[in-house]
Amino acid sequence: MKYLYFDFKLFLILAFTFIIMTVAGTLSHELGHYAVAEYLGYDARIDYQSMHTENDVRRKYLDSTFEKYSFEIKNNLSFPGKQNYDAKRKEYRSDRIKILAGGPLQTMITGTIGFVLLLVYRKKIFSVNKTTVTGWLLVFCSLFWLRQTANSFMWTAGYIFTGEKSMRADELRLARYLDFNIWTIHSITGILGLIVLFTILSLLPKNQVLTFISAGLVGGILGFYLWLIKFGQYILP
């Protein structure tokens, strides 16, 4: 019956933490994109939910050249500056792959560090009825992996119910750039996120599992709504 125990005080603390971590996870993910873009020489900025490159002379060159020689490019015909265009397009494609990968890699690396430390110190941070403060910090760090699971679930559900294959997610665009099946990256990382989640649930004291799951659902949904829909656009436009 310990799995049915509900700690309201712990629920409030964890739900609030899930709200904060939803915001922190979103922004740190975008910082992963930002860091790579800046390193590659792009003028980058982030807002509450995405990263943008500005004054992108490389993209402007490619777009203007394509507009001028679209027929030749589509049919792989010769045109003035073709060699330079092909080289710039190849370089830009490589940059886009690196920038796209920066966000998910930051998220997964952070989650992996937390998860490894959680496993290493599990005997010290979990007892029969209690989780230490350090333990909760490592749990929430590990849960950065849940972004992968949530995105994979939402994309799959959207595809099942609408039949549309949205290409907005980083993992889907990465798969397209790398000529992988679009299911590959988001499915594999989504499954890994599930493994992390169920491992955490198995390590938590039984009397905290229901409280943790309830707080995760409420805090995660509230964090998503409050930041990505309601207030984020005004705080970090």
Rank of each mutant, 00 (worst) to 15 (best):
135 G>F: 00
137 L>I: 14
137 L>T: 11
138 L>T: 12
138 L>E: 03
138 L>D: 04
139 V>I: 13
140 F>T: 15
140 F>Q: 11
142 S>M: 05
143 L>A: 05
144 F>D: 10
144 F>M: 08
144 F>C: 07
146 L>Q: 14
148 Q>G: 10
149 T>D: 04
149 T>R: 00
150 A>M: 11
151 N>P: 04
152 S>T: 08
152 S>L: 04
152 S>F: 02
152 S>G: 12
153 F>D: 09
155 W>A: 09
160 I>Q: 13
161 F>N: 15
163 G>W: 02
164 E>G: 10
164 E>M: 04
164 E>A: 12
165 K>A: 15
168 R>C: 11
168 R>G: 13
168 R>Y: 12
169 A>D: 15
169 A>E: 15
169 A>T: 09
170 D>T: 03
171 E>C: 02
171 E>I: 00
172 L>I: 14
176 R>E: 15
177 Y>A: 12
178 L>F: 08
178 L>N: 09
179 D>H: 12
182 I>F: 01
183 W>A: 14
183 W>G: 14
183 W>N: 15
183 W>M: 08
184 T>F: 06
185 I>N: 03
185 I>A: 02
185 I>S: 03
185 I>M: 04
187 S>Q: 12
188 I>D: 06
190 G>E: 03
190 G>M: 01
190 G>L: 00
190 G>D: 06
191 I>E: 09
191 I>S: 04
192 L>Y: 03
192 L>Q: 04
192 L>V: 14
193 G>R: 01
194 L>H: 02
194 L>C: 05
195 I>Y: 01
198 F>I: 07
198 F>P: 01
199 T>E: 06
202 S>K: 09
203 L>S: 07
203 L>N: 07
205 P>G: 09
205 P>R: 10
207 N>T: 11
208 Q>G: 10
208 Q>A: 11
209 V>S: 04
210 L>C: 10
213 I>P: 06
213 I>T: 08
214 S>A: 14
215 A>W: 01
216 G>A: 03
218 V>A: 09
